[in-house]
Design a protein around this nucleic acid. Structure first.
Lengths: 113, 113
DNA sequence: GAGTTACTTAGGCACATGGCTAAGCATGAC
DNA sequence: GTCATGCTTAGCCATGTGCCTAAGTAACTC
C-alpha cells in the first residue's frame, strides 16, 4: 500500500469541482488573465479567486501579476502523479485479471490431458 | 469546453481522500469484506462505511451482502473517465507545445535564409 | 437459546466548502 | 488628477464533510 501523499489529496480534490476543471481545460489551451478565466462563470470574483487559489495550492496552476493583471498558467506536470496513481491501480487490476486468465487456462489444459 | 459531468465530480472527489484511495488500492488486488478493508484504519466502522458509500456512489466500488458479510469489489472501468479527462488536458497542452516548437523552428528557418 | 460477529441506523460535532456582498488597494487610461 | 479597471480583503451564510458515540438488526457459532 502506497504511503499517504497529501499532494494527491489536493490535486484530486481540486479536480472534483466542475468550475475548477473548466478552468484547467481553458488553461490547457494557453495562459489567461483572471478576468478572461472568470468571464464564462456567473460567479462573484472573490468566489472565483477562491477556486484559483485552490488550484494554485494543488500546484496545478501558477500565476503572476503584471501591473494590475494576474495571468494564470497550467502546470501540466502536476497532473502526472494523479494520472500515475490511476494507472497504477488499473495495472494492478489488469495483472490480477491476467493471473486469473492464466489460472483458468491451466485448468482447461489439465482437463484436456 | 467539455460539458459538466457530475460523474467526474464524484469520482475525483472520492479520490481526494487518502482513506478512500487506500481502499481502492486494496481492492485493486481483489475483493474484500468490509471488516478486512476497515482493519488497517483506526476509525469507527460507521465512519468507514461512509467512505465506502462515497466510493459506491461514484461507481468506483460495488458491494453485495452474503449473509452478514458485505464484500466489496473495485469497478476499474469507473476510473476510465477520470484518466481520460487528465489525458485530454495533457494532450491539448502537448499539442500546444508542439505548435510552439514548430513556430520557433519556422522562425529559425526564416532567419537562416 | 445465548452469546458473538458483521454490519446498519441515528444523531451529534467541529471544521471546511462554495457561494454571497461590501469595501478597499493598486494600476492604467485619459 | 480623475475615473475606470483588475484584482484583493473581510465578513457572512447554508450546506457538506469526516469523524465520533450509542443503539439496533441480522446472521453465525456453540
Amino acid at each position: 500500500m502506497a504511503k499517504h501523499d497529501p499532494g494527491l489529496d489536493h490535486i484530486f480534490t481540486a479536480l472534483g469541482d466542475p468550475t475548477r476543471r473548466a478552468i484547467l481545460a481553458r488553461l490547457a489551451q494557453g495562459p489567461a488573465s483572471v478576468t478572461d478565466l472568470a468571464a464564462p462563470f456567473d460567479m462573484a470574483l472573490p468566489s472565483f479567486m477562491g477556486h484559483l487559489k485552490r488550484l494554485e495550492a494543488a500546484g496545478l496552476v501558477a500565476s503572476h501579476k503584471d501591473g494590475r493583471v494576474r495571468t494564470c498558467a497550467l502546470q501540466p506536470q502536476a497532473l502526472g502523479p494523479a494520472a500515475d496513481w490511476i494507472a497504477e491501480q488499473r495495472a494492478i487490476w489488469e495483472a490480477r485479471l491476467d493471473r486469473l486468465d492464466a489460472f483458468v487456462l491451466s485448468l482447461a489444459k489439465e482437463q484436456k490431458e
